[in-house]
């Protein structure tokens, strides 16, 4: 089971200082440099306001620091991120958590395509919907397992080429037991696990995944992830609804193509 990511308790860091940065008109480079300088000087929390499309926020901060973003952050939010906790109070764009290593990304809205691309650790929670190819090639190593939880629905090619980690899609606006709109879920998947609250579209399911029974261990994991999701966003999605578990049918689906 992945280690639960507990939100930072700012009260426990009374020595740190919270700062506010106005990002209007700043290039992504200038914004990230100012943020880095503030954190190096001892800030444990930063509020970024008027963010419009600046990329790579959180990439260069290798420590536990809380960042609250107002506006729309640019692509590759938290790419290669190692430690910080980022809350986006609105929507985010493409590539959130790209190759992320550790920390927490919480999107209080919707996010775009390829969220969690090649993610290696840490957790991403999205309150609402996401775009195409979420968790593409997410991976795990021994007990380091990344987690992605989507509260709404995903568009197509969810979990494409997924190699490890846990991906949970709640479809909280769908009635219990409904079929998810995402097509080609798990195409090329060869590791990790995908849970859907409700059912996948069987006519367009990825060829490399199969359904597996939900075990007690799965229920425990779902309960834990829903507890975190509900606490983050103040919602009440139930772990007792119908869930579907998808796992790869082969660890090497393309072994016959590339190996002799």
């Amino acid at each position: 089971m992945p280690e639960p990511v507990t939100p930072l308790d700012l009260a426990a860091n009374p020595t740190g200082e919270a700062i506010t940065l106005d990002a209007r008109g700043l290039s992504y480079r200038a914004l990230n440099e100012q943020l880095d300088a503030a954190v190096t000087a001892g800030a444990t929390a930063a509020r970024l306001v008027n963010v419009y499309g600046q990329r790579y926020i959180g990439t260069n901060l290798q420590r536990r620091v809380r960042i609250d973003i107002e506006g729309v952050p640019g692509n590759d939010l938290g790419a290669f991120m190692d430690g910080p906790e980022i809350h986006v109070h609105g929507d985010a764009q493409d590539g959130c958590g790209n190759t992320m290593n550790s920390g927490l990304l919480a999107i209080h809205g919707s996010a775009g395509d390829i969220l969690g691309h090649s993610m290696r650790g840490g957790a991403v929670f999205v309150r609402d919907d996401v775009g195409y190819r979420v968790a593409i090639h997410m991976k795990a190593y021994e007990d380091v397992r990344p987690t992605v939880v989507i509260g709404g629905t995903a568009q197509h090619f969810l979990g494409e080429y997924m190699a490890g980690g846990v991906l949970l899609v709640l479809g909280r606006r769908l009635p219990p037991g409904a079929v998810h709109p995402a097509r080609y879920v798990g195409t090329g998947m060869h590791g990790g696990v995908i849970y859907l609250r409700g059912r996948p579209n069987q006519a367009f399911l990825g060829k490399e995944v199969g359904l597996a029974p939900i075990t007690d261990a799965d229920r425990a994991l779902l309960g834990d992830l829903l507890g975190q999701y509900n606490a983050l966003f103040g919602l009440h999605v139930s772990a007792d609804d119908e869930y579907t578990k998808l796992i790869p049918q082969s660890k090497r689906p393309y072994g016959q193509i590339y190996a002799y």
Partner: peptide
């Protein structure tokens, strides 16, 4: 191509979608 560019010029957006 990017949502932020729309928010920048239309701060009172009613709906956005992919």
């Amino acid at each position: 191509s990017e949502l932020a560019s729309i928010h920048l010029v239309a701060p009172e957006l009613e709906h956005s979608w992919m």
